[in-house]
Write a protein that binds this DNA or RNA. Sequence first.
DNA 1: CTGAAAGCGCTAACAG
DNA 2: CTGTTAGCGCTTTCAG
Lengths: 344, 344
Amino acid sequence: MAKKASITDIAKQLGLSVSTISRALNGHDDISEATKARVWELAKELNYQPNHLAAALRKGRSNMLGLIVPHINGYFFPSVMDGIEAVASKAGFNVMMCQSNEDVRREKKNIEALLNAQVEGILVSMSRTTHEFQHFEKVQQQGIPLVFFDRMPDLANVNAVILDDYQGAYQAVKHLVEQGCTRIAHFAGPQHMNTTRNRHLGYMDALRAHGLSVDEQLVYWLPNSSHASGEAGMKELLKLPERPDAIFSSYDFPAAGAMMVLHEHNIRVPEDMAVAGFSNEPFTALTQPRLTSVDQRGEQMGESAVQLFLQMRKRTENFPAQRIVLKPKLLIRDSSLQLEVKKK
Amino acid sequence: MAKKASITDIAKQLGLSVSTISRALNGHDDISEATKARVWELAKELNYQPNHLAAALRKGRSNMLGLIVPHINGYFFPSVMDGIEAVASKAGFNVMMCQSNEDVRREKKNIEALLNAQVEGILVSMSRTTHEFQHFEKVQQQGIPLVFFDRMPDLANVNAVILDDYQGAYQAVKHLVEQGCTRIAHFAGPQHMNTTRNRHLGYMDALRAHGLSVDEQLVYWLPNSSHASGEAGMKELLKLPERPDAIFSSYDFPAAGAMMVLHEHNIRVPEDMAVAGFSNEPFTALTQPRLTSVDQRGEQMGESAVQLFLQMRKRTENFPAQRIVLKPKLLIRDSSLQLEVKKK
DNA sequence: CTGAAAGCGCTAACAG
DNA sequence: CTGTTAGCGCTTTCAG
């Protein structure tokens, strides 16, 4: 196998200088069409492959964007990635993707790797175990634009694009109230994360706003977002002397798990208990009954995150931190619908 | 913001040569502990970040591995990516991930981008629209190890790790036969892809091996792998004069779609019609009834793919193309179970 | 329209 | 144990 051809090989074979080849290959208009053609032809013939590393080193611009997600299970993060890829590639950026696996140590390593790779910006959704932020500060110290999405730290001066989780939860619970539910339980996620904390807050405020009191007994703290933890939660709730008549879950999988348990106990959904989840996972349209859920705008979130990055790198001055908040969308399905009608 | 510190800055401030710094930073043991300590300290102080680009250029080794997946919806590809990441990072490789979006043009661009980025190998699962393979040959011509996973071209000399889709389908259909089903329908995927073609072949052979004939009327050709196409397929099958008593789907989502339609028609699963899917999506444990499916060994596939790559780059000689075939696992759930018992 | 020369940041002989 | 030197492949002044 022949050694990989470089710009110098082309130059020699054509009796031209490397700079001419470079310019020809990059389509500069101060090169004659004739030479351009010759260069292109030989490049093809030699199977020439530009070395991005060398160009990036020289230009001081890698055209790479770093991305860190906690995991890629479920529908949400992949959809964000779709949005990111679309906008990034349109702007001429390649995306270097890492998973932190919900582990802050891994997240730190990801940051290191991306910084070493000379990415021009980093988009990150924090891991579940991230409680300190020095590794992020380091990024900013290097002058690398840093954009959080979905999961962000509780700090003032950070750029982020997030969902209005509070509103999403509020709307879902309001909907349940309007369907006639009065004892609405909640599957709550970790309260140190902005996302699930705000869902919990939205839940509580929606109850209060509609004259219902918040009953701590009706809140089950999910150990994780699996369907198994929803099953466990439902079993707990069924032990209560007075059973809830609805459940709002911070995630879809536990909601579906709860429905499994209800089915086993011959408790009808939504007649005996209404159920609503959060994320709008594709499978929510496939459960029996279909599951009401809140859409998280994943794709749009990804797009906005890249756009924010693109803005940041344009400004020479440190421009004020921006926070973009997307509106959630409640998708009402059979698991919570027309309770009044169905009840009788 | 200070200009990013380089190895030269450290050298100057310490009155040492750059090579000493380089060696110290890389932990060579021909540098005194004393100087190592000084170097490390100043590096930390200056917020020094090694420039991987420069090192890679010089060493001719990028420590980057390219990955192309058709999409990251559903569970399968993310699980493969998990396996890839795990083994790759253990071997000191960073993964550069691209999506082809089931578009061969995009796939070609991805290949270009990865080649430009000087990846040391490429792992790829072909897009659905890939019918020609020059872009892959180009990779091999450059001497870059190329490993296909799951979806591979019909060529002899390619390295690949795939699932035994034929066996998976065969087992699923055999299971349905053993449950007493005699008119087993099939939701078939595209026949130009090894995966879904082999599932179709396994389906047919399992029927024949058990004395059942293959009825073309019972095969519905899925336009895609969405649940909607499964709903459409089920509706078609219900128009037949003689209704099937089981359905084996090439994907899980259409299988779930079919179950929705059956539920609407008050056709019981599995009593009136058994259902089995393919992929073992997490949601298959959450449908009503739970869906029988074939696990695709995603994680193991990813791990094997990286291991194969690592082998390939060790051999100086072109070693013979390897094909690793993983064994599928049939997960029997309620949607197909104990038909005989339940029927009466 | 083209060439010469310098250098991005780092590593790796080769010398001491 | 440390320094000198050359150069990875490319882009970009500065000169013609």
